[in-house]
Design a protein around this nucleic acid. Structure first.
Length: 552
RNA sequence: GCCUCCAUAGCUCAGUGGAUAGAGCAGCUGCCUUCUAAGCAGUAGGUCGCAGGUUCGAAUCCUGCUGGAGGCGCCA
């Protein structure tokens, strides 16, 4: 029995009790009855608090209401026992046969197990990283590279249609400063004060000179443009290469320039004009975001006729919506949180629902400790840890997992020594090891010629088997919750918990026959359980973009 | 000044209004001739920052306070 089925049974029983006049519910039977795994094993396989929640409405003591439900639940097929406990909890134990069938269900579903339909039909655009193409990706971007991709995977698992998008700021003064810095280095001069000073600038200059040595003789303006363009292409390729190496792949790399070249910025202004939220004042064009709660209006076209960055953003948003996305998810760093209000207000200004169409997740900054000191990141100064450097040191799996196992709204301290150590300090190995162990058992079973055969579910009645099955049953709900809250760390925590439950099972329950023993029905039933557990761990790791090794 | 996030074991952190608040690491003690010991079992460790409030019940929701991080440009 799955938690959903139990929840349904509780609702059925509640309705039946109402029909029989045992219970009176003025508000009717609630749609959602919470069924959860109790923390303590003594409280059964599942528990519900429905009696306490409805006691007041039903006009009877919680324990009495719970007892009415318990009497009827004991007659439900698959329910072994139903007991009232504490202030009115209803604790349920599921029969081994009903519980064990789940192993079959999971193995049959395979890669689809855990996937749900809760977001079916929703088109979602997930924009993240969107780093300026004027330097390497650094650790500040890494968190979203891992978590953003994991969010996309989890949303897909919940049935959403997801596009991963990277917005390229390939326009504006930062690009010019970038070009000027490369040109200066190409001439052996220091980069300008307001330019970029990292060593990579020198590398870019040399790479460009190697490809086209004659550039250096061109008129200054043409040189500047050429260094800027070639440097931009090289740097963007480098970012893409680094992200590919980190298993973060984008469906769309969206160029800011194309917004302007295709007239989409003007189109965005037209939409705002139609909606009546444009104002001209002091020689500039403003969006009246204060109409929708922003603390001040925002300039779109400056007095000198130039568009602001916000004008591009507005056009970009309008374009996303016109491409058919229902929800535009923005994953931003904490240094951009001041942006949330105007982004929401902007969505309202173009006639959208800011509570539904725009969603902004703010990731707190990652602190990096190295040799007992915090490393400060600065693109200009050139002292930074790049994504590539950390990936090389820690490995993709360990790094992705380390970043995905914490909620993004709390600041995170990564210890370089810690995450590069590759020891059991790192929970990813714990989960991966469980998967390797499971794979190993399946390999050995094949060698021994033991096959699963027909599942005799009632044989999975060991305490550790029951707990493991209950854990596996939770997976779809964990995925649905993770998708709903955009919190992939729930998957990671669940995997650690499930791996632990498996290791405990493994410690007490022999799966394969030893020595000359013949395979029994119990061996075969446990093989179903092993297969099912492996499927769950593999599917969960997949949602985090972490590999599930068959050997370690 | 205004806004956002955070405060839970020695450390790093979990904890969709539920029962005795958890895990890993660090510490101590056990368990490998048999499916992977990167594992398991045990032990120890807490005024959930402080003070109120909401209710059958609060680490969780609300208000205030303290402490920390960050943000508030016709920059990008």
């Amino acid at each position: 029995m799955t938690p959903e089925q139990i929840s349904q049974s509780v609702r059925d029983v509640l309705a039946a009790a109402c029909d029989a006049g045992e219970v009176t519910l003025p508000g009717g039977v609630p749609d959602d009855v919470t069924v959860e795994r109790p923390r303590s094993r003594e409280h059964g396989d599942y528990a519900t608090n429905v009696a306490m929640q409805l006691a007041k409405q039903a006009g009877m003591p919680p324990r009495e209401l719970a007892e009415v439900l318990a009497r009827r639940l004991r007659d439900v097929a698959g329910v072994e026992s139903a007991d009232v406990a504490g202030p009115g909890f209803l604790n349920l134990t599921v029969a081994a046969s009903a519980q064990g069938e789940l192993a079959h269900t999971i193995v049959e579903a395979g890669q689809a197990y855990g996937h749900t339909e809760t977001l079916r039909g929703t088109r979602m655009n997930v924009e993240f990283i969107s780093a300026n193409p004027t330097g390497p990706l650094h650790l500040g971007h890494v968190r979203w590279a891992a978590v953003g991709d994991a969010i996309a995977r989890v949303l897909e698992a919940a049935g959403a249609e997801v596009t991963r998008e990277f917005y390229v700021n390939d326009r504006g003064t930062q690009m010019d400063r970038f070009g000027a810095s490369i040109m200066a280095r190409a001439h052996g001069r220091e980069a300008p004060e307001d330019g970029y000073h990292g060593e990579y600038i020198t590398d870019l200059a040399q790479a460009i000179l190697a490809a086209r040595p004659e550039i250096i003789t061109w008129p200054e303006a043409e040189q500047l443009a050429e260094f800027r363009e070639r440097g931009y292409r090289l740097q963007l390729d480098e970012q893409r290469r680094q992200l590919d190496g980190f298993r973060t792949h984008f469906d769309v790399w969206f160029s800011e320039r194309t917004l302007h070249e295709s007239g989409k910025v003007d189109h965005g202004l037209d939409v705002l004009r139609q909606q009546g939220h444009l104002t001209e004042a002091e020689g500039a064009l403003w969006m009246r975001t204060t109409d929708f709660g922003d603390d001040k209006d925002r300039v779109l076209v400056k007095r000198d006729g130039e568009y602001t960055y916000f004008a591009s953003d507005t056009a970009y948003y309008v374009d996303k919506r016109e491409r058919g996305f229902d929800v535009c998810l923005y994953l931003l760093g904490a240094d951009h949180h001041g942006y949330v209000g105007r982004l929401k207000a902007m969505a309202a200004c173009v006639g959208d629902d800011p509570e539904y169409n725009v969603e902004v997740l703010i990731g707190q900054l990652v602190k990096i400790m190295h040799a007992g000191q915090e490393m400060k990141l600065s693109k200009r100064a050139g002292t930074m840890i790049t994504l590539g450097e950390v990936v090389d040191a820690a490995g993709v799996d360990a790094l992705r997992y380390s970043l995905c196992r914490y909620p993004v709204d709390s600041s995170l301290t990564l210890d370089v020594e810690q995450i590069t150590k590759q020891t059991s300090d790192n929970p990813v190995f714990y989960v991966q090891y469980a998967h390797a162990r499971l794979s190993s058992i399946l390999r050995n079973a094949a060698e021994l010629g033991v096959e699963r055969g027909e599942l005799q579910a009632e044989l999975l009645d060991h305490e550790r088997e029951s707990v493991l099955l209950a854990a596996l049953a939770e997976f779809p709900r964990v995925v649905a919750t993770a998708a709903e809250h955009r919190e992939p760390h729930r998957i990671a925590r669940y995997l650690e918990d499930t791996a632990s439950t498996f290791h405990k099972f493994y410690d007490e329950c022999r799966v394969l026959p030893r020595g000359d023993e013949d395979a029994t029905a119990t061996h075969r039933a446990r093989l179903w359980l092993i297969d099912a557990t492996r499927v769950v761990l593999a599917n969960g790791l997949e949602m985090l973009g972490v590999s599930a090794p068959e050997r370690m």
